[in-house]
Amino acid sequence: MNAVLQTDQSLVLIVDDEPFIRTQLRLSLQCEGYRIAEAQDGREALTVFEKLHPDIVLLDAIMPDMDGFDCCTQLQSLDCGKYTPILMITGLEDRESVDRAFEVGAIDYVTKPIHWPVLRQRVRRLIQQSQLQQQLESANRELQRLVTIDELTQVANRRRFEEYCAQEWQRMAREQLPLSLILCDVDFFKSYNDTYGHQAGDRCLQEIAKAIKNTVKRPADLVARYGGEEFAVILPTTNPEGAIVLAETICSAVKILEIPHCNSLVSSYVTITAGVSTEIPEPNSDFQAMITAADRALYQAKTEGRDRVKHYNKQSSSTIPIYPFLP
């Protein structure tokens, strides 16, 4: 392997079994300010590619052992090769070879003998296109994140909660596994705002959201701001016992924050109350029943004194309103 590096410039990987051709390409592209790495065959190219992550690959089509077509296919299969353009350099001009180059993932090709001004322009254009594509996809990912994240608390918003709830409900229905939901409500939050001010209330919600997020460890679990001072946690493949334990841990994590609340009727610090429900979804059913059940459990926990966890009990639910409200 032979690499000549210059700072703050795009890296070009040249793959060719002929040293003279590699030297010509290297000298020509160095004059344009590119950094250069070289590989003398397809297998070495794969190793260099994974190590250096070049911005473009100039790949000879005809090489011994592993030709450029096979090498191109393998480069495309690498995780780090998603955005890297591959420019095939070939002495073949027949239709079949050109078609094959594009089929295996080459973005463009040039023929031997190389027309140097054309090569320089294509390298520049392909690198610019690749960079623009990466910037666009990064901007799209950030936009998607912004429309699904609650601005104040930086956990998922209500929209993302409902999307994920529907998604996991259908998945659990297919696999016939339990889906659990925790609904949390900050106790006497209106009184907290009245006492300490809305800015302090915002900071309080931020700290609580952070504590909940730090408590919920599994990647598949989702923490969301359900609305106002309410938070929700979606727990795929979680039975009632596991959901109750996690809800109790979340309540404890909030208590540990020791956020003063002099007008709370249950503690001198901010506390939360949680309602838990668990369902094994039936095919073609709706997740709203699970939300209603968690809401009923939350209401029951409030009526019993707040600062506690209550799991939905169908046997005792008949006396509990479907859409209760307690501040």
Rank of each mutant, 00 (worst) to 15 (best):
R145M: 12
R159T: 05
V123S: 02
Q135R: 12
R141P: 03
L119V: 08
E142C: 02
W116Y: 15
P117A: 09
E151K: 13
Q128F: 07
Q128D: 10
R159A: 03
A166L: 14
T153Y: 13
Q129C: 06
A156P: 01
L152H: 12
I149R: 11
P117H: 06
Y164V: 09
P117T: 04
P117D: 10
Q154A: 11
L119F: 04
K112Q: 12
F161I: 04
N140W: 04
E142D: 07
A139Q: 14
W169F: 00
Q170K: 14
Q167P: 05
R125G: 09
I127T: 08
C165I: 14
I114F: 00
R159Q: 10
E137C: 04
W169T: 00
D150P: 02
E168C: 03
E151F: 11
I149C: 05
T148E: 13
V123K: 03
T148H: 13
I114C: 07
H115I: 11
I149Y: 06
I114H: 02
W169G: 00
A139M: 10
R141A: 14
L136W: 01
L152C: 02
Y164H: 12
Q154P: 05
H115S: 06
R120K: 15
E168P: 08
C165N: 10
S130I: 01
W169K: 02
T153W: 10
N140S: 09
L119Y: 02
A166F: 08
Q128V: 08
R122N: 07
R145S: 11
E137D: 00
R160M: 09
Q128E: 14
Q170D: 04
R160P: 05
V123W: 05
R159E: 01
Q131M: 02
L146S: 08
D150Y: 11
N157D: 00
L152F: 06
A156I: 10
Q121I: 15
R120G: 01
L146T: 06
V123Q: 07
V123P: 01
E137F: 03
L119D: 02
A166D: 11
C165S: 13
W169V: 01
A166S: 12
Q121P: 04
T148N: 15
V110P: 10
P113A: 08
L126K: 04
Q131D: 10
R141E: 12
D150R: 07
Q154F: 07
V147I: 05
E168N: 03
Q131I: 04
R124S: 13
V110M: 14
L146G: 05
C165K: 07
R125S: 06
I149N: 06
Q121V: 09
L143R: 09
A139E: 03
L152G: 03
